[in-house]
């Protein structure tokens, strides 16, 4: 279980020449059960990516606690795997080396990681592209590499930071579909940050709605749709109602112009 307790994050910035402090996050609390798929949704700038990177141990916070199975997070660890918004692939190596990067850092020898790496390349549908370089791949394929890289280290927790935010709508739906298949098979815990309401509902067991300035949880909604899911459920009344409800909430949260 991931237990996020009362997180406070204070940022200092310059405004009109004098230092101004503002709360990026204040009193953020959330619990994520094992094997749960939870989305965090909120307007841009609400601190959802910051929070995800805190769970990964990349960003420090000022007050509060993040516990994973009772242990306090103090840095990145092998129990978590991250998928990045901008893919963050190494441009100087091919798909195989990119997918194997996490294992390589852990000292797994090339011969030993090959089987695992090829398995995940196949799982994300990139067989045939093993020796391509990132620049030779489309955005959607690059994120498949990012996903395979995170899965290859076999983390208990998958952290996804708006992973499909920069690909076109059709590719996005294909990626969502593939992600849901992979996740349903793996039963990993997943935290998925997005600003796309449909995506959040379609993928998740629960959706945490964030409000901005300071960032905190407004409401957690349960998605009681059966699994395995497919695109058909997007037409169901409960799906549409949930989406409408989310939209009503998000509409009122537009950031003040700054």
């Amino acid at each position: 279980m991931i237990d996020i307790r009362n997180i406070v994050k204070l940022y200092k910035k310059q405004e009109d020449g004098r230092p101004v402090e503002f709360y990026a996050l204040k009193g953020f609390s959330l619990r994520i059960e094992n094997h749960e798929f939870l989305s965090i949704i909120g307007p841009s700038g609400c601190g959802k990516t910051t929070l995800l990177k805190m769970v990964d141990g990349l960003i420090p916070w000022d007050e509060g606690e993040i516990l994973i199975d009772g242990r306090s997070v103090s840095g990145p660890g092998p129990d978590r795997g991250m998928v990045f918004q901008n893919f963050a692939l190494l441009p100087w190596v091919d798909v195989i080396a990119n997918v194997g990067f996490g294992l390589e850092l852990r000292g797994v020898k090339a011969e030993q990681r090959e089987a695992v790496v090829l398995e995940y390349i196949r799982a994300v549908g990139l067989d045939g592209f093993e020796h391509h370089y990132p620049r030779q791949l489309s955005g959607g394929m690059q994120q498949r590499v990012g996903l395979a890289r995170a899965l290859a280290v076999d983390p208990k927790i998958l952290l996804l930071d708006e992973p499909f935010g920069s690909v076109d709508a059709q590719t996005r739906r294909l990626l969502q579909h593939d992600l849901i298949r992979l996740w349903e098979r793996s039963q990993k815990t997943a935290i998925f940050v997005t600003h796309d309401m449909e995506e959040a509902i379609y993928l998740s067991d629960r959706v945490a709605l964030m409000r901005p300035r300071p960032g905190s949880v407004q409401e957690v909604l349960k998605v009681s749709l059966p699994r395995p899911r497919n695109e058909e459920i997007k037409k169901e009344k409960s799906f549409v109602d949930l989406k409408e409800y989310l939209w009503e909430q998000l509409k009122g949260m537009q950031l003040p112009k700054s």
Binding site: G57, L58, P76, F84, L90, W92, F101, L105, V153
Partner: peptide
């Protein structure tokens, strides 16, 4: 060097020496 690549390597547990050989050096080449 692209900061997002450094962050990614941190996330996957890179040590300082690994950051240098696998991220900074190829970036600067």
């Amino acid at each position: 060097t692209e900061p997002s690549l450094v962050e990614m390597a941190h996330s996957f547990g890179a040590r300082e020496s690994q950051l240098f050989t696998r991220i900074y050096l190829p970036s600067a080449l």
